[in-house]
């Protein structure tokens, strides 16, 4: 049988000196101090700001003078039909993005790992991260160059197919069709983000103890079985933590992308909470509303993270965040 664990489990040796360990742990706690100071000062100290979401906040009069509204802003937000539509779209788009987008970097990393030529591997690794550096406005510009009806490459190819073969394929602008827009959204998302996502997995793969592969080979495992029984199990903690992070940001359906790509013909399927809040918050400085929406997203994220973490712990007590 192939050994499916990353490392053999051993009990902590019993004979270490209690005094020495205390000394060691003191240093370990000391190491934590700069990081904890950072999080306390730069992250926790400003967190009183979340109460903006419960107050009638005005930037001029300030937080102290603002009236408490309790959950009034949330109620107002939830009642708006446009918000409800944005909420539904948000869930659909996020779900599709996780469904397709989460496994993609893992698959890609496993494939890249199988490349034997180092130069070629480096080349592939570099090229796949490229799209990450191109802003959504430019990606949209390129999609537009492909899809627009007057000069776009796709409609022109379709047109010549129709003329040459005497068929009638509908020529539409995929960016301006409710039915096709989500496909464009997901595909462009996969293209843009999958490569960048491989960085973490490839680093984790690099860290796998080579002896495990040697052991597997001695057990007679071929490449596919090594992938299944060594690489994937060793990636499991990384996969789980990435999944938890991803689930925590489930309500972030991709503001930049949708802001760049949406238009009036597809807004009914593309409007998400962030674009909606951005739109209504722009007119005046509506910080209360934006904060309330952000808080709502965070709470949903928190619940889902705790849930995922709990499940992860059930499956593998060593993994998860907490």
């Amino acid at each position: 049988m192939v050994n499916s664990g990353c490392r053999p489990k051993k009990r902590v040796s019993a004979w270490h000196s209690f005094v020495r360990s205390l000394h060691m742990d003191f240093l370990l706690y000391a190491l934590l101090i700069p990081g904890l100071i950072y999080f306390t000062v730069f992250k926790y100290a400003p967190m009183y700001g979340v109460i903006i979401g419960f107050k009638d906040y005005n930037i001029v009069s300030g937080l102290d003078n603002a009236n408490w509204l309790g959950f009034g802003i949330f109620r107002d937000l939830f009642q708006r039909a446009a918000f409800q539509r944005a909420f539904m779209n948000n869930i659909i788009i996020s779900f599709l993005k996780i469904l397709w987008g989460f496994p993609m970097p893992i698959i890609l990393s496993l494939l890249i790992n199988e490349v034997r030529s180092r130069a070629y591997k480096k080349y592939v690794q570099t090229t796949v991260i490229l799209p990450h550096f191109i802003s959504w406005f430019i990606i949209y510009g390129m999609l537009y160059a492909l899809c627009n009806l007057s000069t776009g490459a796709i409609p022109q190819v379709l047109k010549s197919i129709n003329e040459t073969f005497g068929v009638r394929i509908d020529i539409v602008n995929y960016l301006a069709q409710k039915e096709t827009f989500l496909n464009v959204l997901i595909i462009s998302y996969l293209w843009q983000s999958s490569g960048y996502g491989t960085i973490v997995y490839l680093a984790a793969i690099t860290g796998i103890d080579q002896q495990l592969y040697e052991a597997a080979m001695i057990d007679g495992a071929g490449k596919p079985r090594q992938m299944w029984h060594v690489t994937l199990p060793c990636l499991r903690p990384t996969i789980i933590i990435m999944l938890i992070f991803r689930v925590g940001s489930i309500m972030n359906a991709g503001f930049d992308q949708i802001f760049a790509m949406s238009n009036s013909l597809v807004i009914s399927v593309a409007d998400i909470i962030d674009t909606y809040v951005y739109r209504i918050g722009m007119e005046e400085a509506k910080f209360s509303l934006a904060t309330a929406a952000g808080l709502f997203k965070s709470v949903i994220g928190l619940v889902l993270v705790l849930g995922t973490n709990w499940i992860a712990k059930k499956v593998d007590p060593e993994s998860g965040i907490m």
Partner: peptide, 19 residues
């Protein structure tokens, strides 16, 4: 009402025009 709903109303007008 404009402060409160203005931009959303404008978005509906544009959505209507296009569709």
């Amino acid at each position: 009402a404009y402060t409160e709903y203005g931009t959303q109303l404008n978005a509906i007008e544009m959505e209507a025009l296009a569709n």
